[in-house]
Each structure stands twice: as structure tokens, then as C-alpha cells.
Design a protein around this nucleic acid. Structure first.
Lengths: 122, 122
DNA sequence: TCAAGTAGGGCTAAATTTAGCCGTATTGGG
DNA sequence: CCCAATACGGCTAAATTTAGCCCTACTTGA
């Protein structure tokens, strides 16, 4: 692994031909779905997110929050109070994602029993 | 890497709490979006898929086709003719995926210019 | 002064996915 | 007989993502 300023230097190209690839690029990452949904519901401080998503390592949660920020889905607001605090929020672009997520999640819920069985034995 | 009968033995648990996770589980894989779309449009024989998605290695394409089959999205039809031939098709479950893909892809296309810029410099 | 809570990065290794090679078997055509 | 096309699996290594450790710096409260 080669890091440059903490960032991984990618070797294989990213494919973004169709719009779904763009969606997948933004959403893929173990905790990103949960992070976006938590922020949408108002759980928007790093500490609170760490507590709720307690199965995730802090490290990875922080990394994925940073990716969501750099992808324009979340904004990070740093308040200059003592002790300083941080809040995340959805950007306008991030808000347009919500109905898409709802629609897509509905598909999954509709077919959950079928899908769960298939995925477990794959 | 440990293989059992050619399959990878997973060590970390899969998370499927919300319907979107189910969708992501089915769709994630470098060529799966393209494969589903090709089959939907009638390019449904392994050789033809290999020729069209020529950047992909045959090996990976075959693996991802097999995963889509085991996830219940595609069916593999083996015709008992000489020389024998194979065709893939969407299952009923796979067909329900099409409008969801269209809707999600539309989101990506709508925001393509913005997203492309953000993703490139992430 | 010490512990705890705030927020966060550096680093290494494990887990997972992808790339790419080589080998199998059948059939049809030159 | 040999080559090409059909379709597919074994295997190894590279690339990428995730896990999990330790460290910094600040502030509040005991």
C-alpha cells in the first residue's frame, strides 16, 4: 500500500459510464449508507455516530465521513466554541439522494425474505 | 486466501439491516451493472458479453455472472444442442430490478457533471 | 494533577475483490 | 490433423478495503 498524505494512490481506473456507477461510487463503503441515514435523521456529531454505529472502528467511520464530504454528499461544520464541536449535514446534493435511497431501499424490503435466503447461501 | 470448492470463505459478517444494503449486495461487483444491463438488452451469451465488456477478464465476468445467478437475478439456460450453448436471462426478481436501476441511474445522470468533478479529485 | 470526553491522524496487517495466467472439454471447418 | 470457437475452472498475485492498534491536542470536572 502506498499512501500520499494519508490518501491511497489508486492504480486501477474508476468506471463511471452510467449514472448508476456514480451512485454506487458514492454509496459503496461499509458504513456509508448508515452514516448518510443517521445524519439525515439528525444524528450528526462524530461522537454520536461512533456510539450508534459501535460495530465500526472509529478510524473507518472517520475515513468514510471524509469521503462523503469530498464526494459532496455531506458538509462538515466546525463550530468555534470551547470545547470545539463538529456537526455533519447533508449538502443540497446529498438531499437529492434521499428519495433515491428510499426508493431503492423499498425494493430491497419488498424482496427481503427472498434476497436474504439467496445471499446467505451464495 | 482460503478457497473451499472454488468459493471464498468469508470471515467478516455481511450487514443487511436496510433494504438498500440488499440492493448494494446484489449490485456491487465491478461488472455487475453492465452485465445486468446487457442481458436486459438481449446480449445474453457469455461469448457476446466477453466481447462487449472486453476490458474485463473472462474469469471475473464468469464469476460475477455466477454470483448474479446465485443471487437470483439471472438465470443460466444451458441448451442441449451440439455445440451446446448458454444464454442468460433476467429472473422475475431481476426484472423488478430494472425500474429501480433506471431511477437510480437517472439521479446519477442528473448530477453527473458535479459528481464526476468531485469523485475525480477525491 | 488526573481521568474522561471532545475530534482526529499514522501506521500495519487482515480481509476481500480484481487481474491475469494456464488448463480442461467439446464441436466444426479447413 | 490442427486450429478456432464454444464455455468453464484452478491458481497466484496485485489492488483495494476494512480492522485495530497507538498517538496528539484541547477542555471540563473531580
Amino acid at each position: 500500500m502506498i499512501y500520499i498524505c494519508g490518501m491511497y494512490e489508486r492504480k486501477l481506473p474508476i468506471r463511471l459510464e452510467c449514472g448508476l456507477h456514480l451512485f454506487m461510487e458514492v454509496m459503496s463503503g461499509k458504513w456509508k449508507i448508515s452514516l448518510i441515514w443517521c445524519v439525515y435523521e439528525g444524528i450528526n456529531r462524530p461522537g454520536a455516530l461512533h456510539r450508534i454505529l459501535s460495530d465500526a472502528s472509529r478510524r473507518l467511520l472517520d475515513q468514510q465521513l471524509a469521503q462523503l464530504v469530498s464526494h459532496g454528499i455531506l458538509v462538515k461544520k466546525v463550530f468555534d466554541v470551547k470545547p470545539f464541536k463538529v456537526e455533519y449535514g447533508l449538502t443540497p446534493l446529498g438531499q437529492t439522494l434521499i428519495p433515491v435511497i428510499e426508493n431503492t431501499a423499498r425494493w430491497g424490503e419488498t424482496h427481503r425474505s427472498e434476497l436474504e435466503t439467496l445471499i446467505r447461501n451464495s
